[in-house]
């Protein structure tokens, strides 16, 4: 009975969220910078790949941006579930804050992939299962952003956007397993593969560091954008109170 246990939903209280997240921001920023810097140093000190030569270095940003894009969508969908089920305004704010960040990571995954595909495959773009489902991810993000701006009624916008985000989450396993289910030009899974990763440790380290670095960067920017939205809401409430 003495003292409430700290529950995750206590963070759903905006005031509490602001207090707890404020000191996290600088530490997260430092961790992001260190990880990405180390990742870049390793990325440019690997030998070339036995077949792909120096284009293997594109993998160190292509794969992490793609992973981050998918993780961001997963988090956006999760926040949307909380928004729909628990009706916490902060969950809705969190989902909305993730969308533009996820869209940029998705676009970068597509662009870096294209710059890798041209010299190795011989094509900037092909309509295979992996590339097409990943393009759909970008369309889902853009659709979500467009939809969130289309309603003047905020609670309705939140509900419709949450539904889109949750239904769209079905695309995540399709992206992941596309290279197993169908014949594709995109190569198969290198990391989560039967028989262990097919990537030499010398390439695995920069890949993991960049993946962690981009994930931290996403979390940092996500936090900043959620904080921004809370501040805006506070300003809005004060202005309302002042006029009435």
């Amino acid at each position: 009975m003495t003292g409430k246990p700290v529950h995750i939903f206590e963070l759903a209280n905006p005031k509490r969220f602001m207090d707890v997240s404020a000191p996290v921001v600088p530490w997260l920023a430092a961790a992001t910078t260190v990880t990405i810097t180390l990742g870049l140093i390793l990325a440019f000190n690997t030998p070339p790949d036995y077949q792909q030569g120096d284009t293997v270095r594109i993998m160190f940003i292509h794969v992490p941006t793609a992973w981050t894009a998918m993780m961001a969508y997963g988090l956006m969908a999760l926040a949307s579930v909380v928004s729909l089920v628990n009706r916490h305004p902060l969950a809705d704010v969190a989902a909305k804050a993730a969308a533009p960040l996820g869209a940029v990571f998705t676009a970068l995954g597509l662009i870096t992939g294209s710059l890798w595909g041209r010299p190795m495959w011989g094509a900037w773009w092909v309509w295979d299962g992996r590339l097409t489902s990943f393009l759909l991810l970008l369309l889902l993000y853009l659709g979500y952003i467009a939809l969130s701006d289309a309603f003047s009624d905020e609670t309705r916008a939140a509900r419709v956007c949450a539904i889109l985000a949750i239904v769209g989450a079905v695309n995540l396993p399709i992206i992941e397993f596309s290279v197993q289910w169908w014949t594709t030009l995109h190569q198969g899974e290198s990391i989560l593969r039967r028989g262990g990763p097919a990537i030499s440790p010398v390439f695995l380290w920069p890949l993991f560091l960049m993946a962690i670095g981009f994930t931290l960067l996403f979390l940092l920017l996500w936090l900043i954008r959620i904080r921004t939205a809370v501040l805006k809401r506070r300003t809005w409430n004060l202005m309302l109170r002042a006029t009435t």
Partner: peptide, 27 residues
């Protein structure tokens, strides 16, 4: 970059530019 400078450097440059712009915009 072993003759692939035209692909490796743009990939890194576009990523760096887009992510810095994203961070600047959020901040």
């Amino acid at each position: 970059q072993g003759g692939y400078a035209g692909y490796v450097w743009p990939a890194y440059a576009i990523t760096a530019l887009a992510l810095s712009a994203l961070a600047a915009w959020a901040l």
